[in-house]
Design a protein around this nucleic acid. Structure first.
Lengths: 226, 226
DNA sequence: GAATTTATCAATCAGTTGATTGACAACTAA
DNA sequence: TTAGTTGTCAATCAACTGATTGATAAATTC
């Protein structure tokens, strides 16, 4: 935990900083964000393989030299986009599911909702995330940022599993580490290549995790409400 | 199932054809394979982003023009490598696990063994597969080949699940589709980014799938043998 | 042994790529 | 007004890229 991202100025909260990346106030920030959005679009369409500074500049309706004024090198642009993408994932979420009365279950369903949201409304985010995951394997600077994103996500799921087992929402015989590992694999696998089978997978995960009483209780309720 | 890969001549079995891709007999085939192996290495190190025909030729100790003699275009080289990679995955496997007496469980453990094998001895195969999965989203020709690979794999798992539930090795209350979807997500997720948690995940999957009697029976046996 | 095919390479082409430069306008500070 | 800063662009550079060409030697066929 020693040296952090180092990019968050002290006078801002992390939330303000992230939202500032997506909704900048000053002109310079706006142009930077426009360039990052253009970069995002180019990568979503053509991957890193097809990423050209000229293409990005053209999409942002700016001269290449202007791009290099804000991002001196292509690498700086890429690392800027990694931050940008991270902010998007932190701030963008699917609608909150109807409260079930079980905190861990609500958290799990929020994860499903997020997954559906990205898949249906922001598929480019998943695609570009995949590109960065792959690039991270060869680019330590990018890997750092990807690790931070993954760490946040993992931490949230870890808490959910611990709470769910502790308060009896999830089955008692489950092993925290096993479940966490399986969920992480499953979600990242589903994020990168999911068929139309995700609906059944959600069902399967709930049945696997929930204690019998909670399972039965929520089945009755969900059948009524839907 | 209508038109197949179209590339397998009738007088060969599929197995012979695939092994011919990896162990060619004639000079032309050997040079092609050498070029494909060089392509494989370049992509493993630098991704499609860093794939240059010159780099491949240099690695194979051949002139660029020679490369273009065997593969007229870069695209032809890439599609050739996709076939090559597919053949590798079909022919290369981890050691067979000690027979447990339960067919479906053995099949599952073979899947684990394969995963361990690729991860430990052929990590480049997983890396390059990821590259192709991503590229497939923008390259229909590559996607075709990736789909065929994935189809084989999926089919095998589907049979395992069906058999396991039918013969009582797996828990009766499991839903085939749910389980298959979860396993596919989990394995592809673990293949692309697995921590050191895969050992616990394997345990978790067995406990989740196996009927109580089989679970207990195999626990006793496996504790003895290990 | 002549003719043809196969395999290879050095040289080259036309187009691309990341990055720099010098000029110019708009704004700001003194 | 003057001097300095910021933002923008057209033009350009050197290096790179996929692909082609013409020459050449070796192997194969007739």
């Amino acid at each position: 935990m020693g040296q952090e991202t180092s990019a968050v100025p002290d006078q801002f909260s992390v939330g303000e900083y992230l939202s500032g990346l997506l909704n900048p106030v000053d002109e310079a920030g706006k142009r930077k964000t426009a360039l990052l959005q253009a970069t995002f679009d180019v990568i979503a369409e053509a991957g890193f393989e097809g990423l050209r500074t000229r293409g990005v500049a053209q999409r942002a309706r700016v001269n290449v030299a202007t791009l290099h004024y804000y991002f001196p090198t292509k690498q700086a642009l890429i690392e800027g986009l990694a931050q940008f993408l991270g902010a998007k994932f932190v701030l963008l979420h699917g609608p909150a599911p109807a409260p079930s009365g079980y905190k861990a279950l609500d958290r799990l369903r929020q994860e499903f909702s997020d997954g559906d949201y990205y898949y249906q409304h922001e598929p480019k985010m998943l695609l570009v995330l995949e590109e960065f995951r792959l690039r991270g394997k060869r680019d330590p600077q990018v890997q750092k940022i990807v690790d931070i994103m993954h760490g946040h996500w993992r931490h949230g799921l870890e808490q959910m599993v611990a709470e769910g087992i502790a308060d009896g929402t999830f089955r008692q015989e489950l092993d925290k580490e096993e479940v966490l590992g399986m969920l992480l694999s499953m979600f990242s696998g589903a994020g990168s290549c999911r068929g139309n089978e995700f609906e059944t997978v959600k069902q399967g995960i709930e049945q696997w995790l929930l204690s019998e009483s909670v399972w039965k209780a929520t089945r009755g309720a969900s059948n009524e409400s839907e």
